[in-house]
């Protein structure tokens, strides 16, 4: 086992444990912080994959902004921060079965897919992912339209949020 694999397994395990804690902890603020830990684990996996820009974006957007938004929303909406109701309903066995089947099916599918075991080609040292992304995002023959549409989408999100907060007032 290579050191890289060991690091990956540790990070992936920590991410999964954090994700499990998000749904099992009864304190909603703790759930938010466990969610942050899980998101950070995902960022670490991006970093292991040499996707530095995506890793930093994951931290900046998800931990720096979305997590803060969650916590503000929690403080805004719930007076009782402790969940006392039952954490499972009577369908949990069926749910577990479906989840296990989905996992098993996906695992079997991926095992038979020969590209899974192909080693990724090494990234040439001159390759600058950020600059490449920049030229793709601004090139008329590539992604300039999605780039501008993203701006409209963000505008819609902001107007929607302002509208909701405004009518509630």
């Amino acid at each position: 086992m290579t050191p890289e694999k060991i690091i990956f397994l540790i990070v992936a395990g920590a991410t999964l444990v954090s994700a499990l804690m998000v749904v099992t902890t009864r304190n909603i603020v703790h759930a938010a912080f466990w969610l942050i830990a899980a998101l950070f684990g995902v960022a670490a996996i991006f970093a292991i994959l040499n996707a530095g820009f995506i890793a930093v974006v994951q931290v900046v957007v998800y931990i720096g902004a979305i997590a803060i938004l969650f916590i503000f929303a929690v403080m805004l909406t719930r007076k009782d921060l402790r969940d006392t109701s039952a954490q499972q309903n009577r369908n949990w066995q069926a749910g577990a079965l479906i989840a296990a089947l989905t996992f098993g099916g996906l695992a079997a599918l991926f095992q038979s897919w020969e590209k899974l075991s192909v080693a990724a080609p090494a990234i040439p040292s001159s390759f600058d992912a950020v600059a490449e992304l920049g030229s793709q995002l601004t090139s008329p023959s590539a992604y300039v339209l999605p780039f501008e549409v993203a701006s409209v989408l963000l505008l819609a999100a902001m107007i929607g949020a302002v509208y909701i907060a405004f009518t509630r007032k």
Binding site: I36, G52, V56, V59, V60, G64, I68, V130
Partner: peptide
């Protein structure tokens, strides 16, 4: 790091937390 300046903001996010 080729994402140096954005890393500053990422570290700042942890400070905010």
């Amino acid at each position: 790091l080729n994402v140096g300046v954005l890393f500053l903001i990422a570290a700042g996010a942890i400070g905010t937390l």
